[in-house]
Structure formats: C-alpha cells, structure tokens
Computed example of a mutant assay.
Amino acid sequence: MNGTSSPSLPPASGGALDRFFARLLGGLVWAALALMGLVFLASLLVWLAVMVVASLVSSLFTGRPATVTLLWRRYREMARQRWPRRPGADSTTPRADATQATAAEPAAVQDVVWRDVPAEDDARR
C-alpha cells in the first residue's frame, strides 16, 4: 500500500425504505424545479402586463400610438402579406407546370383562378 486511502462506499444493501425515500427526494427536487419555473413564468407575465399598461398610459399623455398597437398593426400587416397568397404569373400547380414543360395543349390543364370569398352576409343569401 502506498498510504493513500479511498473513501469506502456504503453497503449496496438498500432496503425498500431507502428506495422509497430516494424516490420521494427525487420527486421533491423535480417539484421544486417545476415550481421555480412556474414562478419565473408568472413573474414574466406580470412584467409583460405592467409594460403593456405602461405603454397604453404613456400613449394617452404623448399622443403617439402605444407600442402594443404598433406591434399589433405590424403583425396584422405581416399576416395579410403571408396568407392567403395570390398566385402570380407562374403556375403553382404541378399538373399545369408539367403541361407547360411538355408543350401540351394549353387548354387541357389550367390552374384554378383566384377568387375572393364573399363576406358572411353575402354567403347566406
């Protein structure tokens, strides 16, 4: 022996009670972590609500639109540009593309023409 000693491990004979307490302690650790995450999420939501209210109140005094309003307008504008897309000059369907590539008769396959959907009150008539 060289004079160094290694710490000895406890005996591996764990009883049912030891396993129960190990599982209980593991569950308590996970529950504590989940609770900390929920508290963090709740604090973020509270600060978000405070900032929205502060933005709305400051817009009353400055006369400028609130940041929330500007963000909502930008979101709506982006949503209108993204969907629904109106087809351009090029075809968007595979069958029409295939007929254009093979120089088949143009009247054989056609793309569906874009049409506006009527408003709800027009659709009921």
Rank of each mutant, 00 (worst) to 15 (best):
L41D: 03
M51G: 02
T102E: 11
W83Y: 09
S59P: 00
D97E: 09
D97C: 13
A98V: 05
V112N: 08
G27Y: 06
L17F: 15
Q100I: 08
G14W: 08
S58G: 00
V117T: 14
G15A: 01
E105V: 15
T93Q: 12
G37C: 07
V57Y: 01
T102A: 15
R124D: 08
R19I: 02
P84D: 04
A103Y: 09
A16L: 12
A16H: 08
S43V: 05
A42H: 02
T102Y: 07
L17N: 06
F20C: 08
P10C: 03
L35A: 12
A32C: 04
R64W: 00
W47H: 11
A34E: 05
V68M: 01
V50A: 05
V112K: 09
A54S: 02
V109C: 07
N2S: 09
T93P: 07
W114R: 15
G15P: 01
S55T: 00
M78P: 08
L70D: 02
L38Y: 10
G14Y: 12
S8A: 06
F61M: 00
R124F: 07
R86K: 07
S5L: 05
F21A: 10
T93I: 12
A108N: 14
G37W: 05
L38C: 07
V46A: 03
S58H: 00
V53A: 03
V68F: 01
V29D: 08
F21K: 08
G14V: 11
A98I: 11
